[in-house]
Amino acid sequence: MSNPGPRWWLLTLISSGVVILLSAGCGGDGAPTSSTAPTLSAPTQAPSTLMSSGQDQRQAVEAAYTQFWPRSLAVPNSPEDTWRDAMAALAVDPQLSTTLEAMRRNKLVGVKPYGDVTTRINSVDVRGDQATVQDCQDGSRSGQADATTGDRKTVGSPRIPIHAQMVRDMADGRWKVSQLDYPGGPC
């Protein structure tokens, strides 16, 4: 299959809800981190009742956001009947349903994600039980591959702007991704 180009890949990822990208600061305040060893175990995050300062809340939001990406890369490699529980540890609707549907579509067409991504968070705004994360992710070491052969079909972009809406799940007190928006343009 010919590669239709990076723009097609970005649009595919945006529509699929499984954009593969991750951590520190697009002109921001930290060094990028890589997510090369995704895990399906429960995310480590202290209950919100133990976090009192704004800095603690910001760090909890960043951790939850950053953990979403390697999980979304790893989950499609596990049995489909485990996907919902694995992703529900880090996402709520509407993003949870969007991500799961994208994984199902990708499975039907015979593709799966590969690689790892780096988040470059440049701002986190926490307001009560809601937060907004602005990220300039590097997905240049990730993309989609043929599910059977592993042959790479696409390669991601090094600079993808993402605005994430996060909510604190009242059931377990954890921060979770509720919606991902891709505004386009530079970051």
Rank of each mutant, 00 (worst) to 15 (best):
R104Y: 13
V75S: 06
A89E: 15
D29N: 12
R71S: 09
T44H: 01
V117P: 07
D116W: 14
D138T: 03
D135S: 06
V75N: 07
W69E: 10
T149H: 00
P158D: 11
M103T: 02
R127N: 11
K107N: 08
D129R: 02
D125G: 02
Q130T: 11
P158S: 10
Q165E: 06
M166N: 02
T149C: 00
A37N: 11
Y182F: 11
G5D: 03
Q59N: 12
D138P: 03
D172A: 15
P158A: 08
S97W: 03
W8C: 10
D125E: 14
Y65H: 04
S123E: 12
L100S: 02
D172Y: 13
G28I: 05
D135N: 12
E80W: 09
D181Q: 04
A60K: 02
S23E: 04
T49I: 03
G28Y: 07
R141W: 07
A89C: 08
A46P: 07
Q59M: 07
M87Q: 10
R152C: 04
Q67C: 04
S123A: 07
W9L: 11
V117E: 07
V177Q: 03
N122R: 13
I14M: 10
G27T: 14
E62N: 01
S2L: 06
L11Q: 12
Y114M: 06
A102G: 15
V177G: 06
G27Y: 11
V92F: 03
P6T: 01
H163L: 14
L73N: 06
L90W: 01
D151N: 09
G156H: 00
V133C: 02
M166D: 01
S15W: 02
Q134T: 01
Q134L: 10
D29C: 13
S34L: 08
L108P: 01
S35M: 10
A91F: 13
V177A: 03
S97K: 05
R84S: 15
R174Y: 01
W9S: 13
G115A: 00
M166G: 02
S178W: 10
Q134K: 15
W9E: 12
C136G: 07
I14N: 08
R174F: 05
P79S: 00
V19E: 06
E62S: 04
A46T: 07
R105G: 02
P70S: 10
Q134D: 09
L108T: 03
C26I: 08
A37Q: 12
T149P: 00
V18Y: 05
M87T: 11
A131I: 04
G173E: 14
D29W: 14
V126I: 04
T119I: 12
S53H: 04
